[in-house]
Design a protein around this nucleic acid. Structure first.
Lengths: 111, 111
DNA sequence: GTTATAATTCGATATATGTCGAATTATAAA
DNA sequence: TTTATAATTCGACATATATCGAATTATAAC
């Protein structure tokens, strides 16, 4: 086990990502953001963001819990957040989806 | 949140997969199997399998813990196992890597 | 049949996680 | 400057998870 053909040097980084996506609420949030921010749909950078309140409103969990989940996603570098007035806007970390796609493609091809 | 543009109907199935991959040992095991079983490398189906003992030997954890982790991976439909004599052989569930690649590709493209 | 090997299950335990409501902070509006 | 809104942090709690060693099951070898 110790001598892998392929060096997954940042294995922990990915296991952290998967931990963040292992909760159904967090996965839902992440996919919502990924969907909401899909390129071509919105014209400006600002429009490709959504507030914490918007995210939490439909989930049926307390705002503090939403906040907790967002922190998990942020710490896994899956999303980014920025204050804009009273709201905190969230959006997917650029390149993250590509990283995940690449990760599994490499696993599939063995490199 | 409730009216997604895209229906991720099997969200739970994927969050279970990610939960299984959220542990560094399990991710290591999974990638090892994915690597070991990569197509073209082995000629026969049987050669594309590895025993539980082989998997656990390099991880530095108790056999019972390895067994537990394998069960998690199996329940998430990430791997398959089959007894062969005294050994239990493991290999990645065919199509799983494709499913994961597709999942993130769809998330990226918004469908 | 007895013994050895491979793996699983069980029970115990420590740690991590998800959740809430209350209290707090940051900003905008009145 | 007081009040309202959005979000986070904190403390508490219940549940889930990772881990081990001991006991158990399944198979093969003698």
């Amino acid at each position: 086990m110790s001598n892998y053909k392929n060096d997954y040097s940042n294995l922990n980084q990915f296991s952290e990502m998967f931990k963040a996506l292992s909760n159904a609420y967090r996965l839902e949030i992440f996919l919502y953001l990924a969907d909401y921010c899909r390129p071509g749909e919105m014209s400006t950078e600002e429009e490709m963001r959504v507030s914490v309140g918007e995210l939490g409103s439909g989930l049926g969990i307390a705002p503090s819990t939403v906040s907790h989940h967002l922190k998990e996603l942020r710490h896994a570098h899956l999303i980014r957040m920025e204050r804009n007035g009273k709201n905190i806007e969230c959006w997917v970390e650029p390149d993250t989806l590509d990283q995940l796609i690449t990760f599994f493609k490499h696993a599939k091809e063995g490199n």
